[in-house]
């Protein structure tokens, strides 16, 4: 279980996250929605250890994550598919995927995990020897998620998986997210596409200028007139 308590993050003088508290129970799919600049990515990257919180605590199964390096956090079962895909363009699809397993000790099982990723995203198997930079945006997003799955995470952090994708691909990505949830992967999903996110999530938090302004079951939030006006374009 992941618990953030009153987390503050700042870049120099700019305070991006101002006291975020949230939790993700095992097996849950929790969405963190909000507009551009609200602090969603910053929150997620702080969980991954890429940023250090100025204040507050982040605990995962009782372990304090705020003092750990990113690779130690991955070793504890939390992996991230970062915003904007961030795949390694000059490395092949296969090398990208293998890098996702860089902290794994049970290297013998990697073949099975590759198969699982190819089962989720068959197109990656076709592209296995191709360099990542030659993939389309949608394929790169699949690769980024596949790479995060290669760590065999207990908690998967997905940062804007639908960003910049055509509607059909957005649907495909969300189908995979739903499937992962059904398979029991715990997911913290950051999305600007609030409508889609609230469709698949169990619970959601709404972030505005660094603060959680609303939270609750995803279905209730989707029906909330305020959320509808601000995020669902209703």
């Amino acid at each position: 279980m992941l618990i953030l308590e009153d987390v503050h993050v700042a870049y120099g003088a700019i305070r991006a996250v101002k006291g975020v508290s949230l939790e993700v129970q095992d097996g849950e799919l929790v969405a963190l929605v909000g507009s551009n600049g609200a602090g969603k990515t910053t929150t997620l990257r702080t969980v991954s250890g890429l940023f250090r919180p100025r204040l507050g605590s982040i605990r995962y199964d009782g372990t304090d994550l705020t003092t750990l390096a990113p690779h130690e956090i991955v070793a504890r079962g939390i992996s991230q598919s970062p915003e904007g895909r961030q795949i390694f363009g000059s490395l092949t699809v296969r090398e990208n995927l293998m890098l996702g397993a860089v902290r794994r000790k049970d290297r013998a099982a990697l073949g099975d995990d590759l198969d699982r990723v190819f089962d989720l995203f068959p197109v990656l198997k076709e592209r296995i020897g191709q360099s990542g930079g030659t993939l389309s945006g949608g394929e790169q997003q699949m690769l980024a998620i596949g790479r995060a799955l290669m760590a065999r995470p207990r908690l998967l952090l997905l940062d804007e998986p639908s960003l910049g994708l055509a509607p059909l691909l957005v649907q495909r990505i969300f189908d995979v997210v739903a499937r992962l949830k059904a398979e029991g992967v715990t997911i913290l999903l950051v999305e600007q596409n609030a409508r889609k996110a609230l469709e698949v999530a169990d619970r959601a938090y709404v972030l505005e200028t660094g603060r959680i302004v609303l939270h609750g079951p995803a279905r209730e939030l989707a029906a909330n007139p305020e959320v509808e006006r601000a995020y669902l374009g209703g």
Partner: peptide, 11 residues
């Protein structure tokens, strides 16, 4: 190639 991604996946 990508420091953030490398660190995020555990390098």
């Amino acid at each position: 190639e990508n420091l953030i991604a490398a660190r995020a996946i555990g390098v």
